[in-house]
Design a protein around this nucleic acid. Structure first.
Length: 172
DNA sequence: CGCAAGATTGGC
DNA sequence: CCAATCTTGCGT
């Protein structure tokens, strides 16, 4: 059995995160679990984290072991553990050196980034996973979504009003 | 080496 | 309102 859909290519991710984050809405997030079965989920909510200037972005603190993948070429997975129990799923965007990523906050039938990570059974091993080549997680093309909504990002007040106020959360 | 805080969630 | 649970970054 092979992919039924059309997997997104590298080019899709090599753009500004503010273009990718809203455009990824509606696309299919596909996961092949350890037992071999495959499930696809429609992406419904995202947030953009944009490089070194964005104080809400982890990469604003510099290139560390944790943020390293964000500085790499787009199309890779950035996962990190928050509050000791939730794996946050992000997709790296932009060319090498541009440390940006899209946080997946919601998929169809599952609202909240912590719940997304749990549902997809993510863990540290997904750090750096290549979405173009991976056989356990990737994204497939879908019809563009009309009427995309925007709002301030959640839980980033620590970055100050300048950044917490940006309407960089996108949802259907 | 110690420690505070975190892109959250669910229960009281 | 607050505990759960543990990695990370930074200060001592």
């Amino acid at each position: 059995m092979q992919d039924m859909g059309n997997r997104l290519s590298l080019d899709f991710f090599l753009r500004d995160v503010l273009e990718v984050a809203p455009e990824i809405l509606g696309k299919k997030l596909v996961r092949q679990f350890d037992d071999g079965h495959i499930e696809a989920y429609r992406i419904t909510e995202t947030e953009a984290y944009r490089g070194g200037d964005d104080l809400a972005c982890h990469a604003s603190k510099g290139r560390t072991p944790r943020t390293d993948v964000m500085f790499q070429e787009g199309g890779k997975v950035y996962v990190y553990l928050i509050y000791g129990m939730y794996w946050m799923l992000n997709f790296v965007t932009g060319p090498e050196g541009n440390a940006s990523a899209v946080l997946i906050r919601g998929i169809e039938g599952c609202s909240g980034p912590g719940k997304v990570g749990r549902k997809l059974q993510l863990d540290k091993s997904f750090y750096g996973e290549n979405l173009i080549r991976s056989s356990r997680i990737w994204i497939e093309e879908a019809e563009p979504v009309p009427n995309i909504q925007t709002a301030p990002r959640i839980g980033v007040d620590y970055a100050g009003p300048q950044w917490a106020g940006k309407l960089w959360r996108f949802y259907i």
